[in-house]
Simulated scan of single mutants.
Amino acid sequence: MDILSIIGILVGIGALLLGNLLDGGHIGSLLNGPAFIIVLGGTTGATLLQFPPAVFIRSVKMSLWVFRPEKQNLKGQIAKIVGWSTLARKEGLLGLENVMSAEKDLFTQKGLQLLVDGNEPEVIRDTLEVEMTTSENRDLQAARLFEAMGGYAPTIGIIGAVMGLIHVMENLAEPALLGAGIATAFVATIYGVATANLIFLPVAHKLKLHVLAATLAREMIIEGIIAIAEGENPRNIELKLSGYLHDTNRT
């Protein structure tokens, strides 16, 4: 569980509500159904128009990473790679067949399969890098969906404000209806700017960090498998891969 994500949402929204209360306002003044429908519905509609279904579905699945990110246990992975190297030196590459069948990660399993099949290091690297790049691009596109929502929300909020003012102008002769129109106008702007800067954009950037962390872990796996294919000493492999532990983007 990513506690910072929860704290961030609570602090951000809490600061707005507390500031409103200290300024003499009340929470009820920020609750407006029409403004909510305009901003959320308009933002969602524009986003659906921009992105294909596959990206949208992927973004929904990835949104869970904000609170429950996929852990990248680089230390544990390095230990596994060193173990594979030691086994390969003792029993040959075919000795990794049992390891390959027990590996749950499909990317790692594919790398071990290429290794056991006796492919040249460059062939292994090219094959795995294609898959790594494709996966990274797919997930970055999904993260950009939230970035797009962060761009649309403030603009839709302004549209909601203009619609509210139009409603006000249409009812100048009926003072009782002016309050609702003005409230929708200003609250729609707040909804648009607040959701963009407190939710959509932070979520997009956090997801990008998780995507980069996953790519880093796969880069390390590639380097480890290539080192095994080239017959490097297990100790040297461990020293080489330990450099990945210093990256600040890993989870």
Rank of each mutant, 00 (worst) to 15 (best):
L87D: 03
E103W: 06
L40H: 09
I57Y: 03
Q77M: 07
T47A: 13
S85D: 01
L48A: 03
R58Y: 00
G45F: 07
P53G: 00
T44K: 01
T108A: 15
I81R: 08
K104Q: 13
I78R: 06
F67K: 01
F107G: 02
A46P: 03
A88L: 10
K61A: 14
I38L: 12
K104R: 12
D105W: 14
G76Q: 08
G76M: 04
S29M: 09
W84L: 15
A35D: 11
W65N: 01
V55P: 11
K61M: 03
L106Y: 02
T47I: 02
G83N: 11
T86P: 07
S59D: 11
T108W: 05
A102Q: 15
I38T: 02
A46C: 07
L64G: 13
W65I: 04
H26F: 08
I78W: 11
I37T: 10
A88W: 07
A79S: 15
L87A: 13
A102H: 12
V39F: 14
E103A: 12
K71R: 08
S101H: 14
L30C: 08
L64E: 12
P69H: 12
G95W: 15
L40G: 01
V55L: 04
G28V: 05
A35W: 07
G33T: 05
G41A: 04
G33K: 09
G76Y: 04
T108R: 05
P69I: 09
A88C: 08
A35I: 13
I78C: 12
E70T: 06
A46H: 00
L87N: 07
W65K: 06
L74Q: 01
E97N: 12
R89F: 03
L31I: 15
T108P: 03
V39M: 13
A88Q: 05
K80P: 02
H26R: 11
L40R: 10
P53V: 10
F51W: 10
N73F: 06
W65H: 08
F56C: 09
L74A: 01
S59V: 10
I78Y: 09
S29V: 12
L96Q: 13
Q77A: 14
I57P: 00
T86H: 04
I57Q: 02
S85V: 02
N98S: 14
G42L: 00
L31F: 15
P52A: 05
L93H: 02
E103K: 11
G76V: 00
N98Y: 01
A54G: 04
L48R: 00
M62P: 06
R68S: 05
N98P: 01
G45T: 04
G76K: 05
E70A: 03
G76P: 07
H26N: 10
I38W: 00
I27A: 15
S29K: 14
Q77P: 06
T47H: 06
E70H: 07
L30M: 14
W84G: 12
R68L: 09
E91Q: 12
R68G: 00
L106Q: 09
S63T: 11
S101F: 07
L40M: 13
E103L: 12
S101Q: 15
V82S: 09
R68V: 09
L94V: 13
M62V: 03
T47P: 01
G33C: 07
T86Y: 01
W65A: 11
G95I: 08
L93M: 12
S85M: 02
L40K: 07
F67S: 02
G92S: 09
R68I: 05
P52H: 08
M100A: 07
I38E: 13
V39L: 14
P34N: 11
A102N: 11
L49M: 06
E91G: 00
N73P: 13
